[in-house]
């Protein structure tokens, strides 16, 4: 029975992410675990890191759970498990975040999370916007609209990690990927058919 573990560290979109994954499950034998127990993380087949709110508070929440950060590094670096970060969960993949203060991220994809340069447009960037693939990736569905809610963006040091972009004042990464790790700035769990395909593709992804 394949198990996907949704990392529970107090993120606000945990429940909707759980429902999204359950709906996207390719077959009924999939199980979605919600846990902050390092053993459970290491035993799962795939990991999902949700996240809404501020980078600093999400990072603090994650680090308040004993052994979770180490388990994430072990699952990704040693076990090569497929790992998905959603919204702030995607931003946490970066080396650092600049929201409110400088906060260290997970350092799984090189880059910095900085304020979106909306060039006078309203912030947060809230609503449906085009996701445009920059390169082929097994998890990306055909280009469509997805639901975004954010004020910060992931500036990747490695351009190669940017697999899809979106425009709002500036062009910023809508999705990033490296090895077995993928992140979405949008909310696949709220993005209708596009989001459902994205989640299903992630669950079936064999990097």
């Amino acid at each position: 029975m394949p198990v996907v573990c949704l990392i529970d560290y107090g993120a606000g979109n945990l429940h909707s992410a759980k429902r999204g994954l359950e709906r996207a499950a390719p077959s009924p034998d999939w199980r979605v675990e919600v846990s902050a127990d390092p053993e459970t993380l290491l035993a799962a087949d795939r990991l999902v890191l949700p996240g809404v709110g501020a980078f600093a508070s999400c990072a603090a929440g994650l680090r308040a759970r004993d052994g979770v950060e180490q388990a994430i590094h072990e699952a990704v670096s040693k076990q090569a498990k497929p790992f998905l970060g959603i919204c702030v969960g995607m931003q946490l993949l970066a080396d650092r975040g600049l929201e409110h203060q400088i906060t260290e991220g997970l350092g799984l994809i090189a880059g910095t999370v900085r304020a979106l340069d909306a060039k006078g447009l309203r912030v947060p960037h809230m609503g449906w916007n085009d996701v445009r693939a920059r390169k082929e990736h097994p998890v990306l569905p055909a280009d469509s609209d997805a639901y975004f809610v954010h004020s910060y963006v992931f500036e990747c040091e490695d351009e190669d990690a940017v697999i899809a972009t979106c425009d709002y004042g500036e062009t910023f990464p809508a999705a990033v990927a490296k090895d077995t790790v993928i992140g979405a700035q949008f909310h696949p769990e709220k993005s209708g058919a596009y989001g459902l395909s994205f989640l299903k593709n992630f669950l079936e992804w064999r990097p």
């Binding site: 960037h125 609503g127 449906w128 916007n129 085009d130 445009r132 975004f148 979106c166 425009d167 709002y168």
Partner: peptide
């Protein structure tokens, strides 16, 4: 490539 106006 633009943010859509939402209908709620």
């Amino acid at each position: 490539m633009t943010l859509k106006t939402r209908l709620i």
